[in-house]
Design a protein around this nucleic acid. Structure first.
Lengths: 256, 256
DNA sequence: GCCGCTCGCTTGTCCGGACAAACAGCCTTC
DNA sequence: GAAGGCTGTTTGTCCGGACAAGCGAGCGGC
């Protein structure tokens, strides 16, 4: 029961149920392999509707903590999940021996308009145009990494693009240096997939070449954290979120 | 609208809605970046409740095809998802330069009892005990891969374990040779995580060492396929399913 | 031109209820 | 002893409804 943190009281009922069960699992009171109480029991225990209980169980299932089978019940599958996800930010980099022979090239861009609230959050005028940079990093001529970065459209943009193309400096440092925007949170999607035709052409790579795609989303100070992963981004697969720590990886080149 | 395949009529309403929308996305009529009709519109169009529409959208969201934001709407994010997942079975193997310096060791096992229907499906007596093998493959002294294999408990088991431990033969071939059980489908979970203490000890590796965990589930001929991935395993992250093809990877050692 | 406000739209949360489908265990039958 | 049917339990599907929360656009005031 992580209920010592009652200061940040969850507003949502299913979140309360999910966190209560999460506490039971984390503490080991609900051991791995054991069967959870039935949904109707949980309904009675927490005093909520079955729909709410099922929403809570759905979240825990998406974390890989429990498994559900019709007719059999709900079973605890693992005691924890997301610390490994945070750490997994290093694994792909290590596997790819990043960034020794990595080169980065800008291949596409798209404009995004900042809405009222986003503008207020970041302190820019309403309607400010952002530029979504689509960058490609190449490894050993066949492996590719893709990353999208949202930045302001500013006169210095051309210079920034050139910097990204030449140096291996972490992107958040570049943004911070250039625009004074302190990046606090990053969402990262990692997925293995084949290079689509539209991107293969400018790189001179055959379409269908296997690649590791990494999509990052950077957030400033105003964004609330994704704590315990219970509440946020329920449906996004291959996604994890982490709070940025300065000097996370000392000598490495994992540009987060 | 894949409704030409009315022969395999889906029984579930949300499945019908999901497949209809899937067809619109796949065909390009709902382009990437475009906004879907609102939930209430879909309710009216399909003649189902909002709950059912939301279940359908949830499935598509889990496939990474659409993204939903409160107050903004539902947006098409991608045109397809699962073909890349199928192919991604090769990527981790390539990254790890598998299996040149791989060694496999059996570290744990657990008994699972076959229920009535599973027994009937596989043609074994009710109550037959299966053995869940937990194998560890080691790469370069620090990377680990784990795999679980469910096999019958038979006198030949000891021999099988030894074979797995020595050779790099694909597991499905071993099972087929030994037990005449033809494997048709495989479920694969891939996740990056840290080695837990219980497994670190027998290997002499520090707990917390980063690893790539691969969990495979093998199924015989009786299991129905996961077509379009809309219906099955909604909540299991990092999971994909594929139909086994003989000679999938000729020279490689990816033991699926 | 910027700010705060209201408004309409869209998705999120939550309730109560009902029936269907899958499963394990038990019993009966052969 | 194996196969099939029965039954209670458990999760899955589906309905109808209600209100909350987030977002963008438009409006008016400063």
């Amino acid at each position: 029961m992580r209920q010592a943190k009652k200061a940040t009281a969850p507003r949502k009922r299913y979140q309360e149920v999910a966190e209560a069960l999460l506490g039971e699992i984390r503490s080991g009171r609900l051991a791995v392999g054991s069967t959870l109480p039935g949904e109707l029991e949980l309904v009675e225990h927490f005093g909520v509707s079955r729909h709410t209980v099922r929403e809570a169980l759905r979240r825990l299932e998406q974390l890989g903590l429990i498994g559900r089978r019709q007719g059999r019940g709900t079973v605890v599958q693992a005691q924890q999940s997301e610390p490994s996800y945070v750490q997994s930010v290093r694994t792909p980099a290590e596997l790819l021996q990043y960034p020794e022979d990595a080169r980065l090239s800008l291949v596409a861009s798209a404009a995004v308009r900042a809405g009222r609230r986003l503008a207020k959050l970041l302190g820019c005028p309403v309607g400010t145009e952002w530029l979504r940079l689509s960058c490609l990093r190449r490894f050993r001529e066949s492996k590719l990494e893709m990353c999208w970065v949202d930045v302001y459209v500013l006169p210095e943009f051309a210079e920034l693009a050139e910097m990204i193309g030449k140096r291996g400096q972490p992107v958040y440092e570049l943004i911070e240096e250039r625009f004074g925007e302190r990046i606090e949170n990053v969402d990262v999607d990692i997925m293995a997939r084949l290079i689509p035709e539209t991107i293969a052409a400018p790189l001179g790579v055959a379409p269908g070449t296997p690649s590791l795609t990494v999509v990052r989303r950077y957030y400033g100070a105003g964004r609330r954290l994704l704590e315990a992963s219970v509440a946020e981004h329920p449906g996004e697969r291959y996604t994890y979120s982490l709070q940025l720590r300065r000097g996370w990886q000392s000598g490495g080149g994992w540009s987060t």
